[in-house]
């Protein structure tokens, strides 16, 4: 199962993904996709180093499917983390 590594940036808190260049990006399409467990372990190791270095918090691996648009988390919770709340923010239009 393909996996990517997700975390929150320490300084601003937003969701970030570990990239192939060992950087962090807010764009899931930039995420490094680990095809096997060995590659995933390497991602986790790199992320834990970033955690120890106070760059990110709470890094962990997430299972994804990969299609033309890039990786997509399988679990619904992780999907929402990656793509934002499923409901739009409030607007002032009255409905009633």
């Amino acid at each position: 199962m393909a996996q990517i590594l997700i975390a929150n940036s320490l300084a601003h808190g937003f969701v970030v993904f570990l990239t192939a260049e060992n950087n962090w990006s807010g764009d899931i399409r930039q995420a490094a996709v680990a095809a096997d467990d060995a590659a995933a372990a390497a991602l986790l190791e790199a992320a834990q180093a970033a955690e120890a270095g106070d760059q990110v918090i709470d890094p962990y691996l997430v299972e994804v499917t990969v299609n033309g648009a890039g990786p997509e988390p399988i679990e619904y919770r992780e999907y929402i983390r990656a793509f934002g709340p499923g409901v739009p923010p409030p607007s002032r239009q009255n409905s009633s």
Partner: peptide, 14 residues
Amino acid sequence: KSLTAPPGDITAEQ
């Protein structure tokens, strides 16, 4: 609790 906002949500303008 209007239809266009999550319960309890309010915009800065509101």
